[in-house]
Design a protein around this nucleic acid. Sequence first.
DNA 1: AGCGTGACGTGTA
DNA 2: GTACACGCCACGC
Length: 109
Amino acid sequence: MSKAKENRFDDIYDVVRLVPSGRVTSYGAIAKYLGSGGARMVGWAMNACHSMPDVPAHRVVNRIGLLTGKHHFGGNLMQELLESEAVKVEKDQVVDFKKLFWNPSEELL
DNA sequence: AGCGTGACGTGTA
DNA sequence: GTACACGCCACGC
């Protein structure tokens, strides 16, 4: 049975799926919470999220709340999704990101 | 088997 | 405050 290495990504997807609507988190926060390697692995997992359903990767932004992955969504789809969840976005950056920031280490505590 | 790249983060200058 | 370099691990060639 193959326990595919996706297990590593599965952990990341699990946390991303736990992100409540109208909230955003950062790659580093997830990486730190999982204690896996670094933020880059989270980003790479998101790159593979195309193989996973229900992975609101649009709720995951970099540490400054910048929609760095919007290019991978295809245009401003990421911003549209965020605004659809009451998350304001200005110039590819989340407004009040610090307020909307969802920290797994604190919320999931 | 090694090298380059990547949806990041942190530290130093 | 901005710019550059390093570190981290996984994937593609």
